[in-house]
Amino acid sequence: MKPPPFTYCDPESVDEAVALKSEYGSDSLVLAGGQSLLPMLNMRLARPEVLIDINKIGDLQRIERWDDILEVGAGVRQYELEDHQLVGELVPLLPEATGYIGHIECRHRGTVGGSLAHAHSAAELPCTAVALDATVVVRGPSGIRTIEARDFFQGRMTTALEPEEVLVAVRYPVTPQAAGHGFVEVARRAGDFALAGAAAVVNLGEDGCFTSVSVGVSSISDTPVRASAVESALIGEAPTENNIARAAEEIVPSVTAADDLHATHDYRRHLASVVVRRAITAAVARAHERRNGT
């Protein structure tokens, strides 16, 4: 249970990190918060020749707003999102979802970029990125490239990041003031991987009906899933208990996870519609609160 030997590099600039990544490609791995990579090293599931520690790169630790975008640097620690005023105001789903990541000891080290690059299907930040239509910013030898979150996650712990690229930031569209958000997970114990989770953001029109619904679902497939069928079933409808419950059933065909130690396929099909229903219900309640100014 000790890491294998590697050449340790701790660059202080993104340029240098990208240069290392370009040179060593898939023989190198980026060490961010280490909450997934260190276990993989300790168990020798990963054996990089070169380990590129990005924790000294100040440029990756910024949280900034420009226009209607909140940009969060890849190196921002997860716990920082939890009570960051700007983040809470602009994209309130983020701090809420972040509170569900592992335990506080993990969030003290774990980073935003690390969670996205690791791309575990049960993870909160990938699911949230998909629900929020976030954009992932990566840098490689030929410069910056942006990838829509829903294209970024390509398969089981597999992303669109190329071996010579470094994930540098995530851009979240600012959530409209009147929107409501909800995040729900079912796990056997606090901090465990979710058996299923859902992130929702809704907008209600003058007549009280849904004008927009975005839902991301975790842990039901190889990647986080955008619940498009659920969303289209709700647009223009009133946010009644029945309508939400009926629409939530539309997620069931997207459940592809096979039976595993933690849950059967059938149980996950059931849970998927439950978390989607609860997340949308929570989001509607928040949208109502906001409208009533509470």
Binding site: D10, G34, L38, P39, N42, R109
Partner: peptide, 27 residues
């Protein structure tokens, strides 16, 4: 456990609780 499951290795790093089996000494 040496892989971030049990929390018994928790120390305070710059005042924050962290799992010391999931950090390198060089950091």
């Amino acid at each position: 456990c040496e892989h971030g499951e049990c929390g018994s290795c928790t120390v305070l790093f710059d005042g924050h609780s962290v799992r010391s089996c999931l950090m390198l000494a060089v950091q």
